[in-house]
Amino acid sequence: MASQGTKRSYEQMETDGERQNATEIRASVGKMIGGIGRFYIQMCTELKLSDYEGRLIQNSLTIERMVLSAFDERRNKYLEEHPSAGKDPKKTGGPIYRRVNGKWMRELILYDKEEIRRIWRQANNGDDATAGLTHMMIWHSNLNDATYQRTRALVRTGMDPRMCSLMQGSTLPRRSGAAGAAVKGVGTMVMELVRMIKRGINDRNFWRGENGRKTRIAYERMCNILKGKFQTAAQKAMMDQVRESRNPGNAEFEDLTFLARSALILRGSVAHKSCLPACVYGPAVASGYDFEREGYSLVGIDPFRLLQNSQVYSLIRPNENPAHKSQLVWMACHSAAFEDLRVLSFIKGTKVLPRGKLSTRGVQIASNENMETMESSTLELRSRYWAIRTRSGGNTNQQRASAGQISIQPTFSVQRNLPFDRTTIMAAFNGNTEGRTSDMRTEIIRMMESARPEDVSFQGRGVFELSDEKAASPIVPSFDMSNEGSYFFGDNAEEYDN
Results as ranks from 00 to 15, higher is better:
Arg195Val: 14
Asp255Arg: 04
Gly177Arg: 10
Ser28Val: 05
Phe489Leu: 10
Ala323Trp: 05
Asp88Pro: 02
Ala427Gly: 11
Gly54Trp: 12
Gly187Cys: 06
Gly268Asn: 02
Ile116Trp: 07
Asn101Pro: 08
Arg382Phe: 05
Gly485His: 01
Lys351Phe: 02
Ile475Met: 12
Val183Asp: 09
Arg162Lys: 09
Thr215Trp: 02
Cys164Val: 14
Arg436Trp: 04
Arg118Ile: 01
Ile33Cys: 15
Leu143Ser: 08
His324Arg: 10
Ser269Val: 13
Arg317Ala: 03
Glu372Cys: 04
Gly431Trp: 10
Leu49Arg: 03
Ala85Asp: 05
Ile116Tyr: 01
Ile225Arg: 01
Pro474Glu: 07
Leu108Asp: 07
Arg162Gln: 07
Leu358Ile: 13
Val242Cys: 14
Ser413Lys: 13
Gly180Lys: 04
Leu226Trp: 09
Gln311Pro: 00
Asn498Asp: 05
Thr411Glu: 02
Thr157Lys: 01
Leu143Gln: 05
Arg267Met: 11
Val183Met: 02
Ser413Thr: 14
Arg8Val: 00
Thr147Asn: 14
Asn142Gln: 14
Lys91Val: 00
Arg204Glu: 02
Met374Ile: 15
Glu372Leu: 07
Phe338Lys: 11
Ile444His: 04
Phe479Glu: 02
Tyr40Glu: 01
Leu172Ile: 13
Glu220Gln: 13
Ser170Arg: 07
His324Glu: 12
Asn432Thr: 11
Glu372Phe: 05
Gly158Ala: 05
Arg74Cys: 05
His140Trp: 11
Phe71Lys: 14
Phe412Ala: 01
Cys44His: 05
Val183Asn: 02
Gln398Gly: 03
Thr130His: 06
Leu79Thr: 10
Lys236Thr: 09
Phe258Asn: 03
Leu56Glu: 04
Thr433Val: 15
Trp330Pro: 01
Ser297Met: 04
Ala179Cys: 14
Asn395Cys: 06
Trp104Arg: 10
Val363Leu: 12
Thr188Leu: 05
Leu341Cys: 11
Thr411Lys: 13
Arg361Cys: 13
Asn59Pro: 04
Glu443Trp: 05
Leu266Cys: 13
Pro322Val: 12
Ser450Asp: 14
Ala286Asn: 12
Gln409Thr: 09
Ala403His: 10
Glu73Ala: 15
Leu315Trp: 00
Met136Arg: 00
Gly249Met: 06
Trp207Asn: 03
Phe253Leu: 15
Asp112Gln: 08
Asp497Gly: 12
Arg461Pro: 06
Met447Gln: 12
Asn59Arg: 00
Val270Leu: 09
Arg382Gly: 12
Pro161Thr: 15
Arg461Phe: 01
His272Asn: 12
Glu220Lys: 13
Thr45Leu: 10
Arg221Val: 05
Gln4Ala: 10
Ser438Arg: 00
Pro354Glu: 08
Arg199Asp: 06
Gln231Glu: 10
Glu369Asn: 09
Phe338Ile: 07
Asp421Trp: 02
Arg293Lys: 13
Met105Arg: 12
Thr433Lys: 11
Ala323Pro: 09
Ala182Gly: 14
Glu11Gly: 08
Tyr487Glu: 05
Ile96Gly: 00
Arg221Cys: 06
Val343Ile: 12
Ser450Cys: 06
Gln58Ala: 00
Arg106Ala: 01
Leu276Asp: 11
Asn101Ser: 13
Met448Gln: 03
Tyr296Leu: 01
Pro477Val: 14
Glu484Gly: 09
Ser274Asn: 03
Lys48Leu: 12
Gly295Cys: 11
Gln149Ser: 07
Gln459Val: 13
Gly393Phe: 01
Ser482Gln: 08
Arg422Leu: 09
Thr424Trp: 10
Ser287Pro: 00
Arg156Tyr: 05
Tyr496Ile: 08
Arg293Leu: 06
Gly485Trp: 15
Gly180Arg: 08
Arg261Gln: 11
Gln405Phe: 02
Arg267Glu: 03
Phe464Asp: 02
Leu306Ser: 10
Asp455Met: 12
Ala428Cys: 12
Leu166Met: 11
Pro303Tyr: 08
Arg55Gly: 04
Asn125Leu: 14
Ser402Gly: 08
Glu46Cys: 03
Arg162Asp: 06
Lys351Ser: 06
Asn59His: 09
Ile41Asn: 09
Ile301Ala: 12
Ala401His: 10
Ile36Pro: 06
Glu210Asp: 15
Ile406Gly: 01
Gly268Leu: 00
Arg152Trp: 06
Leu315Ala: 00
Gln327Asn: 03
Glu107His: 10
Arg452Pro: 05
Glu11Gln: 13
Met222Thr: 11
Trp386Leu: 12
Val242Tyr: 11
Tyr52Ile: 05
Thr442Gln: 01
Pro410Thr: 10
Ser245Pro: 09
Tyr281Ala: 13
Leu358Cys: 07
Leu154Ala: 04
Val476Trp: 14
Ala178Arg: 11
Asp290Glu: 13
Asp480Gln: 12
Tyr97Pro: 00
Ser482Phe: 06
Phe71Tyr: 12
Glu11Ala: 08
Gly30Glu: 12
Gln405Pro: 04
Gly295Gln: 08
Asn142Thr: 07
Glu443Cys: 12
Pro277Gln: 11
Val352Trp: 00
Tyr385Lys: 07
Ala70Val: 10
Ser407Ala: 15
Leu264Thr: 09
Gly94Leu: 01
Leu226Phe: 11
His82Tyr: 13
Tyr313Gly: 09
Leu110Pro: 13
Trp330Phe: 15
Ser457Ala: 15
Ile36Met: 15
Met440Gln: 13
Val190Leu: 05
Gly490Ala: 11
Asn59Trp: 06
Ile41Gln: 06
Glu81Tyr: 15
Thr134His: 00
Gly209Gln: 03
Ile316Arg: 00
Met43Ser: 04
Asn125Ser: 13
Glu294Tyr: 13
Gly404Ala: 11
Val155Asn: 05
Leu418Trp: 03
Ile408Ala: 07
Trp330Arg: 06
Leu466Thr: 02
Asn21Glu: 00
Tyr281Cys: 12
Ser287Tyr: 03
Gly362Met: 09
Ile63Lys: 11
Phe206Asp: 02
Val329Pro: 00
Arg391Gly: 08
Arg26Pro: 00
Trp120Glu: 04
Asn21Lys: 10
Ser345Ile: 09
Gly435Lys: 06
Gly431Asn: 08
Asp127Asn: 10
Phe458Ile: 12
Met440Thr: 10
Tyr313Met: 05
Gln415Glu: 14
Val186Ser: 03
Gln149Leu: 08
Asn309Lys: 15
Ala387Asn: 05
Ser486Gln: 06
Met191Cys: 02
Gly126Thr: 14
Arg106Gln: 05
Arg389Ser: 14
Val352Asn: 04
Arg150Lys: 11
Val190Arg: 01
Ile197Met: 09
Met136Lys: 05
Gly295Arg: 11
Ala70Gln: 03
Asn247Ile: 04
Ser84Asp: 10
Arg246Phe: 05
Gly209Tyr: 08
Glu18Pro: 14
Lys90Val: 15
Ala181Cys: 10
Ala387Ser: 15
Asn21Gln: 09
Leu353Pro: 00
Arg106Asn: 09
Gln398Phe: 02
Leu133Trp: 01
Leu110Thr: 05
Lys470Pro: 00
Met189Lys: 11
Gly404Lys: 00
Pro474His: 06
Asp88His: 10
Glu339Gly: 08
Arg213Pro: 11
Leu172Tyr: 05
Thr15Glu: 00
Met331Gly: 01
Thr350Ala: 15
Gly177Lys: 05
Val155Pro: 01
Leu379Trp: 01
Ala179Gln: 06
Ile406Ser: 07
Gly169Val: 05
Arg436Ala: 12
Tyr313Arg: 08
Arg152Cys: 04
Glu320Val: 08
Ile96Trp: 07
Leu143Gly: 01
Val194Thr: 15
Ala70Trp: 04
Leu276Ile: 14
Ser3Asp: 00
Lys325Asp: 05
Ser314Thr: 05
Gly249Gln: 09
Cys333Pro: 00
Thr424Gln: 02
Phe346Gln: 08
Val285Phe: 00
Glu495Gly: 09
Ser407Leu: 00
Lys113Leu: 03
Met238Asp: 08
Ser69Arg: 03
Met13Gly: 00
Thr411Leu: 02
Ala2Gln: 00
Ile265Thr: 10
Glu495Phe: 05
Arg106Ser: 11
Glu465Val: 14
Ser359Asn: 14
Asn205Ser: 13
Ala263Trp: 05
Gly249His: 01
Phe412Met: 05
Leu166Trp: 01
Pro277Met: 08
Lys87Gly: 01
Pro303Arg: 06
Met167Asp: 05
Val299Tyr: 08
Met66Asn: 08
Ser367Leu: 09
Ser310Thr: 11
Arg38Val: 06
Gln364Gly: 05
Ile406Glu: 06
Gln58Trp: 09
Ala366Thr: 10
Asn368Trp: 02
Ser9Lys: 03
Phe258Tyr: 11
Asn370Trp: 10
Gly180Gln: 09
Ser438Ala: 14
Leu68Lys: 02
Gly86Trp: 10
Met136Thr: 12
Gly30Met: 10
Ser60Asn: 11
Ser274Tyr: 07
Val186His: 03
Met371Leu: 10
Val194Asp: 10
Glu24Trp: 14
Arg19Ala: 01
Cys164His: 04
Thr23Asp: 02
Pro354His: 04
